[in-house]
Design a protein around this nucleic acid. Structure first.
Lengths: 205, 205
DNA sequence: ATACTAAACGGACTACGGTCCGGATAATAT
DNA sequence: ATATTATCCGGACCGTAGTCCGTTTAGTAT
C-alpha cells in the first residue's frame, strides 16, 4: 500500500540525464569537503562559501549540485535516512511489520529519537528550508507511517491530524532542545513517547 | 503559584533606566511604520531596511530598539499576547480558572488555535529567532500552563514532557501549514486537539 | 547660558544564503 | 582531428539580518 521509493532523498541531480564526469567529480569533492568541515567545526558552522572554497570549486557549483544548504544536509543524511526507512518499513519487528501497531508506534518513536540524537545538527539543518519543512519527502513518509499505524490500531479519531501531533513531538529541533538545553535523558523521552502513543491509541470511551 | 508577570514581552528597553525622549519618539515611529508595512505587504515581506527607511531612522536604531526581527514581531504582538494570557490565567471559565482541568485544556488549545490563525505570520516570525525559540517568555508560559493543568488533571505520566508534546501540536508553523497548505479547517484542528488531550489525560490502565 | 556625559543615532560594514550569466568543457557526431 | 552542443563551471552580484563605531543629542549639573 505504501510503496514509496526507498530513496526519496535528493541525490543531487540538476538535469534529468546522466551525470557528466566533471559534475560527478565535483559532487564527490563537495561531499567529502562537507564531511570534513562538519567533523572539524560542526554542521551549524558549515557555510556554503567555506564549503566551496574547501572543495576548490565555485559557489555556483555547490548550489547547482544541492539546490540549497538544506538540500546538502539531506544528501549527507540520505544513507542513514534510507537505512532507517528500510528498518521501519521492511525490517524485523517490533519496528518493522509483524508486531502489533502500538508496539510498532512505540518502536518508531524510540528509533526516531535515537536517530535524531545521533544526527542532530544535520537533521535540524536539513529541515531548515525556508519554505515547507513539512513537505520534505522523508517527513511526509514518517507522517504517513504514523497515520497508517494509527489506523491499524483502530484509532477512533482524526488519524491524519493525530499523526501530525505525534510528528510534532518527534521534531528534531524540539528533541534536541530538550536533551541539550533542558538536560532531559533520551530514556525519559522514549518513555514519555510510549505513554503518549499508548494513551492516544486507546479508545475514547 | 504561577504568578508570572503578565507582560513578559520585551517592550524595547535597551538600557535599564528611563527612556530618552528621542528614543521614545523613534520607537513610536518604528512601530507605526511596521504596522503600515505589514498592512501593505504582509509580515513576511517586512525587512529591517525597509522599516528603517519608512520610519526615517537609521538601521542601527531599529536593532537597538528591538534587538532582532523576532523581537520586533514580539513587540507588535505584545498587546494581543497579554490579552490572551490574561484570559487563560485570570479570565472566566472554561479558559480561566474555575472549570475542570480537562475543560481548561481543551479551551486553551481552541483559544491558541484561534490566536495563531488570527496573528499567523506575526506569530511565526516572532518565533523565528535563530536561537532558543522555546525559551521565548510567552512559550515558556504556555508550557507551564499546560503542565499545570495536566498535573491538576492527575496525569500519571511525565507532565513536563507531555506538556512539551502538546505545545508542539500547537506550534504556529505547523498549524498554519495545516490550515493554509493542507486546507484543514480550524474546527477540525480544535476537535483533534480535544481528542488528543482527552486521551492524554485519561489514566493509563 | 554653558559644560558635561551618558545615551542614542546612523549608516557603512560583515556574513550568509541564494541567483545569474558569460565562458569553459565533456560528450558526441562527422 | 574537428566541429557542435548541451551541460557545467565560477565568481561577481543581490537581498537580508545583524554589528560597529564615530558622531550627535537629550538631560543634568553648575
Amino acid at each position: 500500500m505504501f510503496l514509496v521509493s526507498l530513496i526519496p532523498i535528493r541525490s543531487g541531480t540538476p538535469g534529468s540525464g546522466p551525470e557528466r564526469s566533471d559534475a560527478a567529480r565535483n559532487r564527490e569533492l563537495l561531499l567529502c569537503a562537507a564531511r570534513q568541515l562538519i567533523e572539524e567545526c560542526g554542521a551549524d558552522a558549515l557555510t556554503m562559501d567555506k564549503l566551496a572554497e574547501r572543495a576548490g570549486v565555485g559557489k555556483g557549483t555547490v548550489f547547482r549540485r544541492f539546490g540549497s544548504r538544506a538540500g546538502l544536509m539531506m544528501t549527507l543524511l540520505s544513507d542513514s535516512e534510507a537505512e532507517f526507512q528500510g528498518r521501519f518499513m521492511f525490517g524485523p519487528p517490533p519496528l518493522g511489520p509483524g508486531a502489533p501497531p502500538l508496539e510498532r508506534l512505540i518502536a518508531f518513536g524510540a528509533g526516531r529519537i535515537g536517530y535524531v540524537l545521533e544526527y542532530g545538527d544535520l537533521a535540524r539543518a536539513a529541515e531548515h528550508s525556508v519554505y515547507n519543512r513539512f513537505e520534505v519527502p522523508a517527513a511526509v513518509l514518517w507522517h504517513r507511517h504514523i497515520e497508517h499505524l494509527l489506523r491499524e490500531a483502530g484509532l477512533d479519531a482524526d488519524p491524519w491530524l493525530m499523526a501530525m501531533s505525534l510528528s510534532a513531538t518527534l521534531d528534531p529541533e524540539r528533541l534536541l532542545h530538550a536533551v541539550r538545553v533542558q538536560g532531559v535523558s533520551p530514556e525519559r523521552l522514549v518513555e514519555s513517547w510510549r505513554q503518549l502513543v499508548t494513551r492516544v491509541v486507546r479508545p475514547a470511551e
